[in-house]
Amino acid sequence: MSSRRFWDWFIFPGGIWIALLFAVPLMLVLALSFGHVDDFGRGVYGFSLDNYRDVFDATYVPVLIRSVAYALATVILCLLIGYPVAYFIARYGGKYRYALLAALVIPFFVNYLVRTYAWVALLADQGLINNLLVDWGFTQEPIQMINTPYAVIGGLVYGYIIFMILPLYGSIERMDPSVVEAGKDLYGSPLQTFIHVTLPATQAGILAGCVLVFLPAVGDFVSAQLLGGPDTYMVGNLIQDQFFAASNWPFGSALTVVMMLFLAVWMVFYLRRASKGEAEVL
């Protein structure tokens, strides 16, 4: 047995691990999505497309659309906020670059749920911000901030912005600064140079950041659950309800499968760009 063949055997422990703990549950979800619920609320395997019909039922389609809309808004806000931050750190951070990056990353060690609760404390009708506004006499009544789409999107932005900033930072830092100077040297005003040189030169980071924020944001349920209300229900909440509250596992599975297919389309799009060298895979 050549040593090459010997080392090939080492694929098995990891391979089996992935097969058992990743592929098998996925297959179970897929199988269950074609099933139905018995009289006791338990999922039963079967061969029906009813669950998939229900996913695209008029009741749920707005939830799907809302989820995508919120995720897109999140991506755009993350990009608008994250780009200047990443640019500043990469180009002007100097020796403090890594300290600044660490300062951004460290809050993300705190559990996402806990961080979102902190937002509740800030935004609630009797929360910190409203109390201050009332105390300082800016308003008589507290302003409705929680249970709004803004709060949910704000929570998502806060939750996932680091996934935008890190790839952006990477691509901006790797960019040759003289390329930007070349843009100015060739009569580009600062704005023109940014649009025609800096943005294209960092498009790999932009694309990576957008995908990395969009994927978790579209399936998120924590932000909508804590910061939103019935009007801000997202597909993540819907799925969670099927598994925990409504106890309709087959329908929850069908929702999950549809979501995964939708995200897979995005991933394929991204990976194809990445393989052409236009995007970076982290």
């Binding site: 040759d176 003289s178 390329v179 070349a182 060739l186 580009g188 025609h196 040189v197 030169a201």
Partner: peptide
């Protein structure tokens, strides 16, 4: 105009696009 030590070419543009950059601006 300057010819940079690293050339500082615009990688997202073809040769023609690079050369036309200044005239377009």
């Amino acid at each position: 105009n300057m010819v940079f030590q690293s050339y500082a070419l615009f990688e997202h543009l073809d040769v023609e696009g690079n050369v036309a950059f200044g005239l377009k601006r």
